[in-house]
Structures are given as C-alpha cells and as structure tokens.
C-alpha cells in the first residue's frame, strides 16, 4: 500500500479536492474533445484555446476517479502558457512515461511527473491518460 499512499498523498488529492480550470466554456475559439472510458465510467471533456502558437487556456469537466479528475487539473496548470510545440512535446513525454515507454527525461513535466507512480498500477494507466489524450485531440483539431 506504500505506493498507493505516496501516489495519493502527493498532488493527486490536492487537485482532486480543488480542481483548477474546471468547467467548460461556450466559446467557439476553444476546441473541445470528449472522451469516455466506458468500462469504468470515466467521462472527461477537455477544451483548449490556442492563439498565436500559445496554449492560452485549458478547461476540463467530467466525472471519474481521483486519478482521472486530478490529472485533468494538473494537466491544465502544466500546459497553460506553453507554446503549442512544447505542449505537444510534454503531452507525448507524459504519455510515454505512463506506459513505461522510453521518454525524454529532460522534458520538464512539472507537477505532472507524480503520475509516474501510476505505472505501478497498470490497471490505472488509462485513468491517468484520458485527459491528456483528449488534449492531444484538441491540438489536432486546431491544426
């Protein structure tokens, strides 16, 4: 249970209880992607606003477990203000880290790095990746 405790005690609970940038906007300058994990019921919508190559805003809403919901919040804080290229790079690095693939350790993941602990719980990798996958989708839409 040590691993689980470490995981929850870090950023996850803080963001789960006090999510940042939560709530969607009815604004056509945002790209919106909705992803569901039908087996567990996680249901997340991510919005991003890209302007002049900069991630101006990231919004999220939905229901899910603590890992899923907190990771959306952490992601929004990590990515807002980054260039689109950096955001893309961070997202890719994060997803590779989660799935135990090779990843570029020099990329600064900021708070999102705590989700590295999720790879000890393979059944939960999906929970930690769904928000980021949705963000990736919004980037593709904005291209």
């Amino acid at each position: 249970m040590r691993d689980l405790e470490v995981l929850y005690r870090q950023v996850i609970m803080e963001h789960y209880k006090n999510p940042r940038n939560k709530g969607l906007l009815n604004d056509s300058t945002y790209k919106t992607i909705h992803i569901k994990n039908p087996t567990c019921g996680d249901d997340i919508t991510i919005q991003s606003k890209i302007e002049d190559g900069i991630v101006k805003d990231v919004r999220h809403d939905g229901t899910g477990c603590s890992i899923c919901c907190s990771s959306a919040s952490v992601m929004s804080e990590t990515l807002i203000g980054k260039t689109k290229t950096d955001a893309k790079n961070i997202t890719e690095t994060y997803l590779n880290m989660l799935t135990n693939k090779e990843f570029d350790e020099s990329v600064e993941l900021e708070e999102a790095v705590v989700y590295r602990g999720v790879n000890k719980f393979p059944a939960r990798i999906k929970c930690a990746s769904i928000a980021w996958k949705a963000f990736e989708g919004t980037l593709e839409e904005s291209e």
Binding site: L4, C40, G64, I67, F121, A123, R124, C127
Partner: peptide, 12 residues
C-alpha cells in the same frame, strides 16, 4: 470514494 480508486486498494 470512486469505485476505481477503491478497487486499486483491494487489488493491493
């Protein structure tokens, strides 16, 4: 507690 959080504990 979301069931998915709980089930990881039981798995442990």
């Amino acid at each position: 507690v979301h069931p998915h959080d709980a089930v990881t504990f039981f798995d442990g």
